[in-house]
Design a protein around this nucleic acid. Structure first.
Lengths: 150, 150
DNA sequence: TGCGATTCAATCGCGCGCGATTTAATTACC
DNA sequence: GGTAATTAAATCGCGCGCGATTGAATCGCA
């Protein structure tokens, strides 16, 4: 990619390539780290949420991850068939499906402990830089998704 | 997502969610902007490269985008069947396939001009901030992909 | 010249993302 | 209480990403 970016629209294209590539790079990194745990990146994100708090609805997971049931249902079925979670209808509201960790799912938390450590290390960034970048992206994402309130 | 991130490994998880979401947000934004052009985000990236310089090999496009033929070949066939590009074997090296813009593909460049403008606008960032963020992500991506030179 | 190694594109299989639709349960309101 | 509107998951279709493999063309080297 050329470095002679000058105008805002070229910068936007440059940023767009950068975000695209950074996403790929993170995906690749997580893929390698998660391979021995038998998890994909999105599956790891779901497990992370469940390790923080168990027994969530599909809806709740979807809100945290920005995903709907069309993505989550198949993903959760894979986690279920891998023995990491259980899925059952909420007796109090049969529309809702509650996701709970199995023992294997809870036990995986300890083995997954090294993942964020390795990621932090691989970025080569200081804690302060990590925090700043994450916050910048978080704000950028807010700005982008507030636009066009469709 | 909680804001009480303190240790580097929690920051890494926080960053990972942020990158994941920022990627989604960009995808979403581009999807809306590109819908009227009949392009997807990766297709737009390919077209952008071809608008900069026409007549590239699949290999070259792949190097620029970090994609291999398993992703590019079907994508390029879609662009071809939409009449935006042509694909032909390089007579000088029959292993290689050259991608060239059709008239419709070249004409689309003018209509696509507003895309990066809208994106720059939607980020709500100044030119300086755009440039800095893009450069940070570019460096992060370099660091991440240089690790483990597999 | 011949033959193994390399390179490039294509193909296969699987797991996301997501717009759109469907089905079932619950809520709101008359 | 009955019906319409809403809500939650599931399903369908398609387009990426990507590890792995295949097949054809080219290169390297004796």
């Amino acid at each position: 990619m050329p470095n002679d970016v000058e105008r805002a629209d070229e910068l936007a294209d440059f940023l767009c390539f950068s975000v695209y590539e950074a996403g790929h790079a993170f995906n690749q990194l997580y893929r390698e780290l998660l391979a021995e745990l038998g998890l994909t990146y999105p599956q790891y994100l779901v497990m992370t949420l469940l390790w923080r708090r168990d027994d969530r609805s599909v809806k709740d997971l979807g809100l945290k991850l920005g995903l709907a049931s069309n993505t989550l249902t198949p993903l959760l079925k894979r986690l279920e068939s891998n023995g990491l979670i259980g899925r059952r209808r909420d007796p109090a509201d049969e529309r809702s499906v509650r996701i709970v960790l199995t023992k294997a799912g809870r036990d995986l938390k300890a083995r997954a402990k090294i993942v964020p450590e390795r990621v932090a290390e691989a970025t080569g960034l200081t804690q302060a830089e990590l925090a700043e970048l994450a916050e910048t992206l978080r704000r950028l994402r807010s700005t982008l998704s507030e636009r066009a309130p469709g």
